[in-house]
């Protein structure tokens, strides 16, 4: 069983924070197929959030194919979320190192590199939507 929390200052809608936390738990291996998510009532009472927010998060996870509700029993994990094997990470890391070296060579300081990465990352995510 996992526990949820809400960070009001994050600027992320509360229901999305719950969605992210379930995805995170799947990635970290804290949740497996067949596990039951906490009951809506228990999350509402424990975290002090609106039960509709919890329902909305669970519906979103259901649309993503990660969980499915069994009426009267609860909501169960049905999907998996794993990054490709960590062996895939190494070549990507090498490429990123090469890119960072060329950014430095081009005269960008740390802040500019971060800003460029963040900006490119955001626009790519938005384009993919």
């Amino acid at each position: 069983m996992i526990e949820f929390h809400i960070e009001p200052r994050s600027g992320v809608a509360p229901y999305l924070q719950l969605v992210h936390q379930v995805r995170q738990a799947l990635r970290l291996g804290l949740l497996h197929q067949g596990d039951r998510l906490p009951k809506v009532k228990d999350v509402a009472a424990k975290v002090a959030i609106n039960p509709n927010t919890v329902l909305k998060a669970y519906r979103q996870l259901e649309n993503e194919g990660l969980v499915s509700p069994k009426p009267g029993v609860g909501t169960f994990v049905t999907g998996t979320l794993g990054d490709p094997a960590t062996s895939e990470h190494e070549p990507l890391r090498q490429e990123l190192r090469r890119w960072l070296a060329s950014a430095r060579a081009a005269g960008l300081d740390q802040e500019s590199i971060e800003a460029l990465f963040q900006q490119t990352f955001r626009t790519t995510v938005e384009e993919e939507r």
């Binding site: 509402a44 975290v47 002090a48 959030i49």
Partner: peptide, 8 residues
């Protein structure tokens, strides 16, 4: 928390 428990 008590209030949300009541609502749920």
């Amino acid at each position: 928390q008590s209030l949300m428990e009541f609502v749920a």
